[in-house]
Design a protein around this nucleic acid. Sequence first.
DNA 1: CTGAAAGCGCTAACAC
DNA 2: GTGTTAGCGCTTTCAG
Lengths: 366, 366
Amino acid sequence: MTDDRRAAGTPTLEDVARAAGVSRATVSRVINGVRNVDPVIQEAVRQAVSVTGYTPNRAARSLVTRRADAVALVVSGAGIEPEAAPEASGNGSEAGTSGDGNSFTAQVFADPFFGRVVTGVVNYLRPRGMHPVLMFAESSRAREEVVAYLRQGSADGALVVSTHAEDPLPALLAEAGLAAVLFARPARPVPVSYVDLAHQDGARLAAEHLLGRGCRRTATISGPLDVPAGQARLTGFRDTMARHGHPYIPVAEGQFTQESGEAAMERLLAEHPDLDGVFAANDLMALGACHVLREHGRSVPGDVAVVGFDDSSAALACRPPLTTVRQPVEGMAAEMTRLLLDRLARPDGPVTSVIFEPELVVRGSA
Amino acid sequence: MTDDRRAAGTPTLEDVARAAGVSRATVSRVINGVRNVDPVIQEAVRQAVSVTGYTPNRAARSLVTRRADAVALVVSGAGIEPEAAPEASGNGSEAGTSGDGNSFTAQVFADPFFGRVVTGVVNYLRPRGMHPVLMFAESSRAREEVVAYLRQGSADGALVVSTHAEDPLPALLAEAGLAAVLFARPARPVPVSYVDLAHQDGARLAAEHLLGRGCRRTATISGPLDVPAGQARLTGFRDTMARHGHPYIPVAEGQFTQESGEAAMERLLAEHPDLDGVFAANDLMALGACHVLREHGRSVPGDVAVVGFDDSSAALACRPPLTTVRQPVEGMAAEMTRLLLDRLARPDGPVTSVIFEPELVVRGSA
DNA sequence: CTGAAAGCGCTAACAC
DNA sequence: GTGTTAGCGCTTTCAG
């Protein structure tokens, strides 16, 4: 409205400088909050900025600062090589699977876990004027793209959440000398920082709770055993049980999906119809287990006590609500983000890991 | 290893040009696939590229092309003004709400709907070498940031998904002349393209199905009535019922959350203990309704038939699985993305809207 | 068909 | 304190 606008498109530093009667450098200083600028001039510049409606051009800035002020949030999958379609979870008209050939992304978001990661990341990034670029890396081609993206300088670093063990991405990033931080310890050691949960302690809490309620014939639905977290939760549960006089615990392996939890529960029930307690390695599987138990005429927690893991929204979606081991995902994601920004600030800083402690949340199911 | 690398950091066009014995311009042409380049030279350049390990610098390219090759995926919320904390959904130790003050992001991902949007967007963007930047715009400050982000040229356009009516963001973007496409028609007309579902048709399908099964005393749990989708689903349901001789249909308003669905079902049951059919405006609320019905000793679908809406993963998490109205979210999100890219290619193209048809998916609950 | 050269908008030495 | 000046790495006329 204030016909101050030149013929040109968006205003540039030059325009602001002219309007304020100073040099580009000075305007730049004011905008970037560099000290040593006369307060009077500062004010004049600010005026000029608002009059011209100036917004700094990110590309130009990045070109010289060599910072994109963006990070990639990568969900990395299995080492599926060429275009291989993920299996697991039925296909066809199943909810959330429709249309799109690639169901990896769909599967990822089926677990409330990932939404919580996003929440934690975004909440840490936002106050710092940064935003995550969402990427999926489930094929080797996709992984190359992630690496290329970072090498191009489109993002300053990567936050990677692996859904499978043996994920090659962390190593690729490390080799390329790119900044990255992982959610969960990699299956094979890689010189990259990560945050993780004390999974064994969590499983111990679950075991002790079940024992405390008087369960004597417990079984467990484990996560995928090639994933460190799945393995650790199983080990923790077994060890605690063994220490309390229960050396043998029936195990059915699941894949962290509700469906696999249902199948696992069916197997467990078939072989051990008299069980009175179940520890599922995540809430989604616990939810599936509850459904199956009910279908088989078992009441929860009356006949069988069920303990989940994560404390995701699925825990509350269940009836009765799940007693579960809380994993502070949002906090862990925020810490992961903090570690990455730290590293960007000091590229030679040490590689570290931060381990969070789980907490038992007692609700109705056990 | 091939000690070709100069002292400098990442290789630049200049380096490739030198290695190939041509000019920067030629290398640029080859990389950008411009015709009119001698095949022999092309090959030489490609060699040089792989030898040097060259990756184009995105900032430098953006600076001249004025394209970021990135789009913002914005989840836009209510018109909450200053730092106001969202209410709804209890606090404290509730799942998914822990720690972080701002629960907007957490709430967003609690509905599987959003994950499906992401899936659709990513699947369309990826083959085109683009990735979405995730942003939340639940406060006026956050909205300004989104606008600033686009004005800075960090993203070429925005895909916006509003969770509430009266969202001011679409208008802000339109005024600023920024490219955007919406998921769902805005409550107030705004000159921006959008994709949407024929909500009334979907509700009609649900009504007809309930009638077809012989339900005579149906009620509905509506979505928030200030949201066009909530309103349309209610209207569609009521109209169809009226047309079939049921002019009065009990309604309880929900907020599209499982919790609100439970509360609504409680109210409905208190006033109409004899109802035999329920249409919930989304699956999450239908899930809540099923739980409450069971707690009150009603079997589903034996005593009360329940139909949901969306066909999200919640539909399968329910026992029995929900009969529901499928909304092709992934396809809609992909189309929304296509519309945005179209618009970026032809900024003067027409503002359009694409309406998708819903489909009834019959499962166990009705 | 290829090269030379002019910037894109900004920051950061370096002078004054 | 502030202005001048040199690029950051790339695309793109414009000559040849």
